[in-house]
Amino acid sequence: MELLVAIIIGSLTAVGTYLMLRMRTFPVIVGLSLLAYAVNFFLFASGRLMLNSPPLLYVEGPHTDALPQALTLTAIVIAFGMTAVAVIMALTAYLNGGTDKLDMENEAPEVTPEERGQ
């Protein structure tokens, strides 16, 4: 089972990293989501992989470590929220900027008339 989990985490990370390097918002966000899956698996496995052992102390042992499960839950929630923010921002940038490229030219910042205090 260790090998299987390791292969899953490894391939998710590899694919995620590759997609992140595409430098366009859609593949990058998909890549980030895959990386988030990989990291959740990884976090889950950090408490060691055990079969048929609940994290409940009132049940007969052996017990698995409950903490990584709580951590994974936290990480899932945070990753989910952050991905939502990234999607909205990427859409706004695409609609305003007319491009989904992440690279930017070396431009001076824009100043709206409002920002000139007029």
């Binding site: 945070i78 990753a79 990427a90």
Partner: peptide, 30 residues
């Protein structure tokens, strides 16, 4: 326009950083 695009860059970069942070936390816990 430019601020939003820079914002996307900033968000993506930091999301990648956060993912790495969780990877390192898992290693630490292990």
């Amino acid at each position: 326009r430019l601020r939003t695009r820079a914002g996307v860059q900033y968000i993506i970069y930091n999301l990648a950083g956060s993912t790495l942070f969780v990877f390192s936390l898992a290693t630490i816990y292990a």
